[in-house]
Design a protein around this nucleic acid. Sequence first.
DNA 1: ATAATCAATGTACTTCCGTTGCATACTTAA
DNA 2: TTAAGTATGCAACGGAAGTACATTGATTAT
Lengths: 137, 137
Amino acid sequence: MKEIEKRLNDNGVRPTAMRILIYKYMAEKEIAVALTDIENVFAKADRTTLYRTLKTFEQKGIVHQIDDGTHISKFALCEPGCNCELEQDLHLHFHCTNCDETVCLTEQKIPHINLPDGYVAEDANLVLKGICEKCSG
Amino acid sequence: MKEIEKRLNDNGVRPTAMRILIYKYMAEKEIAVALTDIENVFAKADRTTLYRTLKTFEQKGIVHQIDDGTHISKFALCEPGCNCELEQDLHLHFHCTNCDETVCLTEQKIPHINLPDGYVAEDANLVLKGICEKCSG
DNA sequence: ATAATCAATGTACTTCCGTTGCATACTTAA
DNA sequence: TTAAGTATGCAACGGAAGTACATTGATTAT
């Protein structure tokens, strides 16, 4: 688990026990997680700590926030090397309306869009909804 | 204002005074509106009525709901002829991080995306964030 | 080693939005 | 005109995000 500590350190986050656990949990899970999910898993820890851990991770470019249309913020680990604090890694997200899970499709990039004059895009968020691989099988 | 009444009737919504007012308000405003916005404008009316009016409009294909990443649902009138109760009109939305307003860019359609095997998309939501026309001028 | 300093965690509370249940007014059809 | 259905109002609930303050824990300098 030294890798996790290194990853956190490299991103300027002190590797506390709690943070390592949360990182580990997110690494094992392949889907985006909500604060509530983490709360349920780490029931003994305080909500606020978990909340702030996610915020810190986000600020330091360890996770990115996903808005999948459920009005609940979800988070997923960034790919190693992704600089989404600086420039967005514009992959898309898929939200399954059957199992209610959201996954990163890191291979599928958001295509460039021509905007009308005067509009300057700095970030993009594309969520497809439908049936995921697991549920369609 | 007979046009509004007709529009509501055609979509199976009884054109009450309140509903006509709300429709009118949304038609005049060019940006997507949140429930809170409407609440502020029609302060004497009850929140629930306004809430349910939006829900009804949405069900009947008069407005569509927009999730611009602010965690607040916004609504905008559908284009006449858009059948988004049935199949999504896949235009994109632009959220200005300066003035915090969200607009429909009905001309800009969401491009088709090739998904990995097993994924079946039924809906798509693309929100670009940045500086809008008004704020960049 | 100890004090001083800064970061991380815990406790409690607040606010905002979405939503629902039930009562009342209004409108339409029998 | 009565009955049925629809729209509105009132009240309350629940979930999620966020904040203020106290406390613990870790790090640095003396």
